[in-house]
Design a protein around this nucleic acid. Structure first.
Lengths: 196, 196
DNA sequence: ATCGCAGTTGGTCAATTGTCCAAGACGCCG
DNA sequence: CGGCGTCTTGGACAATTGACCAACTGCGAT
């Protein structure tokens, strides 16, 4: 009924199509079809396909940030929190690989699309920021200080998570991936110094 | 003249188009145009566009593996070799970001393309293999043993390199990226145990 | 009741793109 | 010379796709 509601429906439908068929195959017709709406609806709710994709990108970024926060373990001492947070992140990837795959596809799409580069930049800015916050909070509540500058540590963590995900999407080697995350967790612990 | 030579020309042209405009915009017409050949040539040299892309993927993988080997520092003691190899890798990324970007785009393309998943799997299999070899060789010539299983260490290294590259493609923060690589180098050193 | 406006719809257009083909050119061998 | 196979070319076609629009519906306010 309301045009605004249809927008949301279409955004959700577009995301489902992306997960199922990939960003490249997410055409206006595929989206309205998924949402069970007539084709004409599309350009009544969006001025262009790009506008829809832009909307999907910001949603994915926000939901990714939110998920990172929710997954961050709050209980226990530092090494248990780190280990369990990494594991929780990983279970999220194995549970819905398609969503992460779409995230990367959209990043590359944005990097190529004139005027969308800023969106890709912001996407990673948000991810780095949330990692910084979580690392800072963990340090404070554990009474330690990171021996490496926070922006560097956050980027390192982000890189490992992105890297193992990408590699796993290709070769699906869960076992070794978990070992890498365990190794990374131990490394992080070694970068914590007890406060005086 | 020769059909085989044209194939090579077209593959090279396709790669240039990909770097400039992205995989999605690498159409048959864009490729033959880049190669200054008439359109009809295309399906005389390739049965399909997919065949061309498949060819480009294998070339990129091979050249990536070769570059990794060539960049691997041979002189000095272990920590200098590691630090300089990581730095050399990184300078390669900053020198030609487009090529790396295309690599990722092709990986995602392959993951979505029916029957191409195997190509993506093989791509990462090769990368992991070369990292294993280089790490093994470095350990042997330095008289140390890695305290972490080689496949895990190779995957970890691959993840960090992929991850920092991806992040940098979005935000172009070279300074912090170099710090991450320095940190990773130190971490690797801490995982080496002197042989008895 | 009527006017007007937000919502709705199916059809249509122009552009792009992968693929194919018929006709010609070139060169080599019998 | 004549044919034959390899190469070359421009054009064409069907399918897809983003975008647009003219017409219609229904409802709330005047």
């Amino acid at each position: 009924m309301a045009a605004k509601d249809r927008r949301e429906e279409l955004i959700a439908a577009a995301f489902r199509v992306m997960v199922r068929d990939g960003v490249a195959r997410t055409t206006t017709r595929a989206v309205v079809n998924e949402a069970k709406m007539p084709l004409g609806v599309f350009h009544y709710c969006f001025t262009s396909r790009e506008e829809l994709l832009q909307e999907v990108i910001t949603r994915i970024t926000d939901s990714g940030v939110a998920k990172a926060r929710s997954v961050f373990e709050a209980e226990g001492d530092l090494d248990a929190r780190i280990a369990r947070s990494l594991l929780a992140f990983w279970e999220g990837v194995e549970l819905s690989p398609g969503e992460h795959q779409v995230g990367y596809e959209l990043t590359h799409y944005a990097l190529r699309q004139e005027g969308f580069e800023e969106l890709a930049r912001r996407q990673y800015e948000h991810y780095l920021e949330v990692h910084e916050q979580l690392l800072a909070e963990a340090a404070e509540s554990a009474g330690i200080t990171w021996t490496v500058p926070l922006p560097v540590l956050a980027r390192y963590l982000n890189a490992v998570l992105d890297g193992v995900t990408l590699c796993w999407l290709a070769d699906r080697d869960s076992e070794n991936t978990r070992e890498v995350l365990r190794l990374t967790g131990e490394h992080l612990m070694s970068l914590a110094a007890k406060d005086a």
